[in-house]
Design a protein around this nucleic acid. Structure first.
Lengths: 234, 234
DNA sequence: CCAAAAGTGTTGGTCGTACACCCATGC
DNA sequence: GCATGGGTGTACGACCAACACTTTTGG
């Protein structure tokens, strides 16, 4: 993205809003811009779409560069096309929402997403707060759109499971903390179990693991573990 | 769209999936292509996005050409970017979902949308059936995506009201027939009224009209009329 | 011309499901 | 201390029944 753009051309980019959940909190993965415009500001990872390149290939390449490899999920979020969203010229961005299990990776920095009233703000790893509007380009708007979409879709899709570090072995408590992080409000454990049973276990999307194979070291009663049934077994 | 496209450039277009409801049935408005590619096939109205033109301006211009003027509603649907979706070159289309009150207009032809099982087919005005896959480009996929989106959003948004010919004077029966057309299944009148009351009337989105000012000539008991409260009065 | 039938709008009830909220028990 | 399960009350949709008001039909 540090190339010169021609003024009489229209460009299409892919921007990735990479979200992850850790310890009951929702994070966005951002990178600091090394070149103008918005040099030094935080931004979503993005890349130009090549003329003969599928958008998915552009995104895959971008994610492979950022994340070391491993499971990830994405879906198209929204296409941002404001005339002046990029001072270099006409750049239309197809923003994607990416859900990854954890963020141990790449040159990206994870910012906690917090909802102050109805506006959201970012908490830097050090602890400093960063208003959403401080991001490069219109990325603050992309962030808001993505979080809103995620919150709206979490309870009638299976997005939440893509945040699990081990989809083959997880407890309902872990899953619940993902829901709580995304919705940013506590969830009743009793209703949550009933919901998971009826919506995911009975349809055969997840299944309980053998009770003997589990060993969740921690305080309190050990949790029963579940696994996501792979698509080819369903 | 009958211009020559340069091979080494990337183009962005806007396609409009214009939907309308008439007599309890859902219609899509299509135009027959006069030029290659896909000459003679039915297609969604579309237009190239100019270099210095906001996408909304492109869409407004397209709709102004197609519809004589009047209320319309649109929202971005999805961006289609397959490499070979347009044989002339790399053309990425930002598809939009448009809801209009009726279709008395333009050079467009209205096809009834029917759901055969889970695939949908189009019924020409003459009565002939047209599989969704017979449309030009990937417009069959755009149609399917749009209908699915509309069905998913109709009962937690106010899209349905944009299909009303007279938002300032409508009956609950008319509104119900819009829901039935979109969902393509009958709706219980009793529950429908309760839903409308709690979701739209009590929040002040619609209000009953004075009983004396109504005169719905027809068989059966005259219906109470309602109006959508304009945004500046809410 | 009048009364009955048919058609549409409107209101009410029951039943089962699902969720909010609370509490008890197992490890 | 955390996981698990049960219980109650409320909200909402599926389904059903009745009533209100109008036009149409048939003597």
């Amino acid at each position: 993205m540090h190339l010169e753009l021609e003024r009489d051309r229209l460009y299409v980019t892919v921007d990735a809003l990479i979200l992850t959940v850790r310890e009951g909190r929702l994070y966005a993965l951002l990178s600091r811009r090394k070149n103008p415009p918005f040099q030094g500001r935080w931004a979503l990872p993005g890349r130009l779409v090549g003329l003969d390149e599928p958008v998915e290939a552009t995104l895959d390449g971008l994610l492979a560069e950022m994340m070391p490899e491993g499971p990830r999920f994405y879906e198209q979020l929204y296409t941002f096309s404001d005339l002046n969203r990029d001072p270099r010229g006409r750049v239309i961005s197809i923003a994607h929402l990416v859900a990854v299990p954890e963020a141990p990776s790449g040159g990206l920095t994870s910012f906690e997403i917090r909802l102050e009233g109805d506006a959201l703000s970012l908490i830097a790893p050090g602890g400093g707060s960063l208003p959403g509007g401080e991001l490069a380009f219109d990325h603050g708007g992309i962030l808001a759109t993505g979080v809103q979409r995620l919150r709206g879709k979490i309870d009638y899709t299976d997005i939440a499971f893509h945040f699990l570090t081990r989809p083959d072995c997880f407890s309902l408590g872990q899953l619940q903390s993902i829901f709580e992080a995304v919705l940013s409000c506590p969830v009743d454990p009793s209703n949550f179990r009933r919901m998971v049973k009826s919506r995911y276990e009975e349809p055969g999307f997840i299944a309980p693991l053998d009770a003997s194979t589990v060993s969740p070291r921690g305080r309190g009663r050990p949790a029963a573990m579940y696994r996501v049934i792979p698509k080819n077994e369903r």
